[in-house]
Nucleic acid binder design. Structure first.
Lengths: 206, 206
DNA sequence: TCCGCGATTGACTCATCAGTCAATTCCAGG
DNA sequence: CCTGGAATTGACTGATGAGTCAATCGCGGA
């Protein structure tokens, strides 16, 4: 049958996805119309429904695509011979660089998906939990080999770590924090320093 | 004139607000109809518009009401003679107890407002930033008096601290973390321990 | 007892969109 | 060329839901 040209079809699909990122980022998922996406993509309204079953599926796709890349990166990192601190730094770097590279996409993922996680299927929550668990694993192994103390549970450390990153991204997204290459690099360092080093001048247990 | 009975009017308004909390929590702000709120409150559709200018204003009111209480608590705490760590613990306690006391309200605030500050006015972002700044102030003063080291900026420490709390609340909201009195108390301790104590077994600077 | 005004009602209007579908274009293979 | 089916189009439908408003109710004061 020769599906016209599979590559071209995939490209059209991507054009629509990329347009959706821009539209979702600027108007919000609920604030935009499907026709806005079509217009932005320079494509007829109906074509969106040729490539996607629904408006929801477009958002779904964007999230899963990106989140899976991140999970792969974390898993890969996890297999390498690095200290826990180095692994955490690498994860923070990946996420922050993702923002640097495509702020709109990250905005959509952070702002729209969490809210949608409510109404959308359980799928997203499971995916998000998966990331936490990978991070918790890194912490747990560091505690086992003595490089991290075990005053906090790994699960909890993972939450705090990811929470710090998410807050920083939110700060950039909502423009309450200055953005720029210097700030991005500083943020990577500070996330890791806060979580690993803590704030106390004198460690609780000597 | 005697506005019928001012107290009764305020009560009706409150009944509508409380109903809105339940409806927003279970269906989401965008997923519900104004008539759902009216039904839940046992009140006619039009009455919602007698007390509020729009659906948005209902959510607005819920957020501001609660957030202002929190800001007051933090400001009050800030004036007391406590260590920075104690202050942070008290803030974490207040937020977590707020969740314990009214999980639906906190769910609405976190899911619909904090993470969606986008679609709403700039007002909310400013309010949220205000909280960060108060926390940053606590950290800054602790750094000045030597009880906190100054490896991270106060602004950043505040982000990490609040981020950790928000992640924990999200975990409870989306049911990926176990809930219960024991967990609530543990969470307070762990948030503060993570941020203040850090994960490293050996402090970076001896 | 009656009056006046705010509280309360809910049917209605009107705009908005997600999703459908019949018509048309375009390409690949024969 | 011609033909079959996929890609593409955009007008249309049907549902939905925010906000309006004219009518009614009922309390507090005189």
């Amino acid at each position: 049958m020769a599906a016209r040209n599979e590559q071209q079809a995939a490209e059209k699909r991507r054009i629509i996805l990329d347009a959706a990122v821009r539209v979702f980022a600027s108007q919000g998922f609920n604030g935009c119309r499907v026709s806005d996406i079509a217009d932005e993509a320079g494509v007829a309204y109906g074509l969106v429904y040729h490539y996607f079953r629904s408006k929801d599926e477009v958002l779904d796709t964007l999230f899963l695509e990106r989140w899976n890349v991140m999970l792969d990166v974390i898993r890969d990192l996890d297999g390498q011979d690095l200290t826990a601190r180095e692994k955490l730094y690498a994860i923070a770097s990946f996420i922050i660089d993702s923002y640097r590279h495509d702020p709109d996409l990250m905005k959509v993922i952070i702002v729209e998906v969490t809210r949608a996680a409510n109404s959308f299927g359980q799928t997203h929550i499971e995916k998000i939990t998966e990331a936490y668990e990978l991070i918790a694993g890194i912490v747990a192994r560091a505690q086992a080999d003595g490089s991290f103390k075990d005053t906090v549970t790994p699960r909890f450390a993972a939450l705090a770590f990811y929470g710090a990153i998410e807050q920083v991204l939110s700060g950039w997204i909502f423009e309450t924090l200055p953005r720029g290459d210097v700030e991005f690099e500083q943020a990577k360092r500070l996330v890791v320093e806060t979580i690993c080093g803590g704030l106390d001048a004198v460690p609780a247990t000597a």
